[in-house]
Design a protein around this nucleic acid. Structure first.
Length: 269
DNA sequence: AACAATACCTGACAGC
DNA sequence: TGCTGTCAGGTATTGT
């Protein structure tokens, strides 16, 4: 489910809803998510005041009045958060973690595939990769690409090189910049690099504006759906005509390093 | 050191 | 209806 725009959508909602609120209790219903939830984090009554909620790469980071206890949530592939009044909670299948707030609201993490995580911030590995939304410049992209013989699509998905893109937005950005997912990164020309750098930021900003992409199950913590799935050019558009003005091609889907690449072979060269 | 393959999990869906 | 196989938006780990 969640790539950068979906995480950003969650963070913006949670930040405005929960900044200044105080955590009364954190409870895990099962601790075997992607990584074990630290024993002192789960089932803790430590009172923590939320000072801010920010996005670090694809992690939702809760900054508190006790920085050593700052923690993060990663949504993995199928994680969904919901913020609900504490007195009306009905727990659902795959609810794994609950945070109760003084304001009588609870934040609940539901994650069927359990690829998500709840970790202290100091358990996170430092990732120096530039954020695709905020830190990626054409020059940076150029130097990252010059060092890699991977296909550009594969490189875009590598969070250690550039953080934030997943399969949807990598496909969309390559379409916008008319670049084939198979072109080797170190063969991109300066014009292509500028175009791609621009396209990445454009598609992410637009997706955030539409509240993310809800293809299967993405929801904001207020349960609302994103709308960007209606604006996708190639992702999930297999066999549809290419919508680029003047192009008569068709969107194809091909497996590339284990992931589906959607693109128009006619205009993405 | 860079890269590809694998593994972690459940659910939805297509085809039989 | 129920079985089987395939696929899913992420990423750490393992092997080459």
């Amino acid at each position: 489910m969640p790539e950068l725009p979906e995480v950003e959508t969650c963070v913006r909602y949670l930040s405005s809803a929960l900044t200044g609120d105080t955590i009364l209790q954190q409870t895990s219903f099962r601790s075997d998510l992607r990584f074990p939830i630290h024993p002192s984090l789960q089932n803790s009554n430590q009172s923590l005041t939320i000072q801010s909620i920010i996005r670090q790469h694809k992690y939702i980071v809760f900054k508190t009045n006790i920085p050593d206890l700052d923690f993060s949530i990663h949504l993995g592939m199928s994680g969904v958060l919901r913020l609900v009044p504490s007195d009306t909670i009905t727990l659902k299948k795959h609810d794994h973690y609950q945070i109760n707030f003084q304001s009588n609201r609870s934040l609940i993490l539901n994650d069927p595939r359990r690829f998500g995580s709840v970790l202290y911030v100091n358990q996170l590995n430092h990732n120096p990769a530039p954020c695709a939304l905020n830190k990626l410049t054409s020059q940076l992209l150029s130097s990252i690409c010059n060092q890699s013989k991977q296909p550009i699509k594969t490189l875009l998905l590598d969070q250690k090189k550039i953080s934030g893109l997943g399969n949807i937005y990598a496909c969309e950005a390559l379409f916008l910049s008319k670049i084939s997912p198979y072109q080797l990164a170190n063969t991109l020309k300066p014009l292509q690099l500028r175009s791609l750098s621009f396209a990445i930021k454009l598609v992410l900003k637009k997706a955030i504006r539409y509240g993310g992409t809800s293809i299967r199950d993405f929801k904001s913590p207020d349960q609302s759906l994103g709308y960007f799935q209606h604006h996708l050019w190639v992702y999930n558009q297999e066999n549809k005509p290419c919508r680029r003005h003047g192009c008569v091609g068709q969107i194809t889907r091909q497996a590339q390093t284990g992931r589906s690449s959607f693109f128009c072979a006619t205009c993405q060269k």
